[in-house]
Each structure stands twice: as C-alpha cells, then as structure tokens.
Design a protein around this nucleic acid. Structure first.
Lengths: 144, 144
DNA sequence: GCTTGACCTCAACCAAAGTTGAGGTCCCAT
DNA sequence: ATGGGACCTCAACTTTGGTTGAGGTCAAGC
C-alpha cells in the first residue's frame, strides 16, 4: 500500500490540494514528510476525507469532525471497527437531519395544501414550535 | 392589519433586528419608513422571513432566495397563489435534498454493513459516483 | 545535469451571513 | 415636555471553509 503525495490524495479524494493543507492545519488529517519535506499520506487519509465530505453535506462543521476524529488513533491506521463506530455515529446524525427535513417538508405541504398561509396559524411563520425547536435559528449545527 | 416595527417583526419572526437590517440591505425584504425614518413592515414580511429560514435549513443561500423573491410583486402584498407557487418550488428543493441525504445514508449503511471500508470499492471514498455527482465538492448549493 | 511540474510555506484574500459598537434620533408613556 | 427604550446609519469585526499568490525547493525524465 503505497503512500500518497498530496496531489494524488487530492485527485483521488476529489478535493483541492489547498483543502488538504487546510485540513492538516486544522488537525483533521496528518502526513509524514519525505526528507525533502513533502507530504506523504497513509491511505486512510482518503477515508478521513470521505468522512469530512459526508459531514459537510449534513452540515456538520469541521471542528466537530475534528473532535470525532480525535477518538481515532493517531499513529496507527484506524481499524475497521473504529471506523465503523464513527460511521455509525454519523449515520445517526444523518438520520436526525433527514427527519428534520421531512418534518419541514410536511409542514410546508400542510401550509400549501390548507391555504393556511394566514400567518397567525402557519407553522412556518411561527417560531417556537417544532420548526424552530432545533436551536432557534437558521444557523449551523451546534456541536454537543 | 397593522404595520410592524422592526423590533416587533424580529420578535415575531424569531430573528435578530440586525438580521432584518441585513436582509433589507440584501434586497430580501422591504420596508416603508415613518416620517422619522423608522422601518414599518407589511405583515407579509413575516412570511418572507419564514421562507428565508426554511431555505437556510435546506442549504439554499440568501442570494438564491432573493432571486426567488424577485418573482413576487414588490409593491402589492403577494397573493396566496403567488406564495403557493414559490412554496412548491421550495418543496421540490427540499425533496431533492432529502433524497440526496437518504442516498447518502444508504451508502453509509452499506459501507458499515458490508465491511467494504476497503477504499477501492467504497462508495463514500470514491468520488465520481452518485455521492459526488451533485457538484464535485463539499461546498454549498450552487444556484442555477 | 538540467529542466519542468509538483511541491513547500506564509500571508493575504474571499464570500456568506450576520453581529457589535459608536454616535446620534425618535416616540410614547408618564 | 421629558426620560428612556426603541430606532437609525455606518463601519468594523467574526466565523467557516477554504483559495490565491509570491517566493522558493524537490524530484523524475530526458
């Protein structure tokens, strides 16, 4: 299993080299260096990047991903079990997010269907109910 | 139907006053002014804000919302039909987003279930398939 | 042995979506 | 008619997730 240069890793993961530098600065991935100071990645970096991308789609900020990764071993390449455990957590996150959106869609359907766009009754227009219950604002996922 | 001051609107919509100022600067909402230059909102501003919040949850940037709003009448308060049409478009957006996430979750399930965390086969680790198909990156929704 | 593309660091910049603060005005209840 | 809370503008600052560029080094093929 060869080590990857930053360019290879970027190409295979579908991200920019600058993003990998950035992730490394943020402590999400690590690299060994050649004698000439060039990065060499173990292949598990690709899995880390995959997880990062999944997380971003779900709206989880990198800092939360970093915390999740911090439960993985630093030196040793993580075992399948370790990855699976992490993935399961992501899956729950994803499930939650999907449920939120379905709920939202249902509300929107009601609103259109019943013509309730009268503001006093509309679930969309009235914060404080299920719609607004997840954190009081349109802002990002607040990590635990 | 009384007009709303910025504070009332903010309270009723569950956002900060500064956010309303911001939305107005960005052209998402409008206000009339009193002789003393204070904002007065027609009550449809609450619906606009509700739509903004829905959009943000789904990951649609404000600029795209602004474009969507630009199909609504500026002077006249939008009719129920006009709102319904817009809401329906949001609903499609939402549907798409839900489908994407469900797809993602399914892939993740496969990855955990089958132990395929061998990178060469894993759908998560390999961009270029359905996972990566929506725009080549973990970045935000790119409006049309 | 040289050249060319890939790589290095560091600093500056970008965009979105606001928030914060300064300095000043409005208006409503007493 | 006045005090204080709500409002005004404008500019600067914040965070997240990067990109871009300058100035210089590495390494692989001819």
């Amino acid at each position: 299993m060869r080590e990857l240069s930053v360019g290879e890793a970027a190409r295979r993961a579908g991200v920019a080299v600058s993003a990998l530098h950035f992730y490394e600065r943020k402590g999400l991935i690590q690299s060994l260096r050649t004698s000439g100071n060039q990065r060499r990645y173990a292949s598990d970096v690709l899995r880390r990047i995959a997880v990062i991308r999944v997380a971003q789609r779900v709206g989880i900020p990198l800092e939360a991903v970093r915390r999740a990764f911090s439960t993985l071993p630093d030196e040793r390449t993580p075992s399948r079990e370790e990855w699976a455990k992490m993935s399961a957590a992501w899956q729950d996150e994803l499930e939650d997010r999907i449920n939120q959106l379905m709920n939202l869609k249902e509300k929107l359907t009601e609103c259109i269907g019943c013509g309730c766009l009268s503001l006093t009754a509309c679930a969309l227009a009235n914060p404080g109910d299920a719609l607004a219950a997840d954190g009081g604002g349109p802002r990002r996922w607040t990590p635990g």
